[in-house]
């Protein structure tokens, strides 16, 4: 038998939820979405991811910070994916500040990216929805990959 085991690995997203846990509310700031968050336990995590990514994109856009625009392109892709995940209301949600330090320079950029990568991994760990967990984990891995690139 020739098993195409590697090819078998290409699997699509799954919406299965398992053992939902509470999102990390400590990472959020109060907002008008509180009621929505009660209805959707992942709303806080999603809003936090949008805030983080928006902030990273804004800071990467400053002159001399993101040489080659690698991180700006990354976060633009991430924001689009988050928008799709959130549906039409995503862009209407207020984006509180990310809380990440806004120091200038490439070294500070790497620090911010690393902090965001870790927080996204944490949000993925805590997400109630498997689909959202997958997206957040993929974003976290995408930042790690970008940071590891020469």
């Amino acid at each position: 038998m020739t098993a195409s085991g590697v090819a078998v690995l290409g699997l699509t997203a799954c919406t299965t939820d398992s053992s939902p846990t509470s999102p990390d509310t400590s990472a959020s700031t109060p907002s008008a979405t509180t009621q929505a968050a009660e209805e959707d336990p992942d709303r806080v995590a999603l809003d936090r991811a949008v805030a983080l990514t928006t902030d990273l994109l804004s800071q990467a856009g400053q002159p001399g910070v993101d040489i080659g625009g690698r991180f700006a392109a990354l976060h633009t892709t991430h924001l689009a994916a988050l928008d799709r995940a959130a549906g039409a209301s995503a862009s209407a949600s207020p984006s509180p500040g990310s809380g990440l330090p806004s120091l200038p320079g490439p070294r500070a950029l790497r620090k911010r990216e690393l902090a965001a990568q870790r927080e996204l991994a944490h949000l993925a760990q805590e997400a109630a929805s498997g689909a959202l967990a997958r997206l957040l984990a993929s974003m976290s891995a995408g930042i790690a990959a970008c940071l590891s690139a020469p």
Binding site: A13, T77, A81, R84, M139, A145, S148
Partner: peptide
């Protein structure tokens, strides 16, 4: 896996493990 891909010479993917999400 995402960082190993880069180590083997691939361009970093924005959404590793989720190409359908991009």
């Amino acid at each position: 896996a995402a960082t190993r891909m880069v180590g083997f010479g691939a361009a970093p993917q924005p959404l590793p493990g989720g190409p359908d999400l991009a």
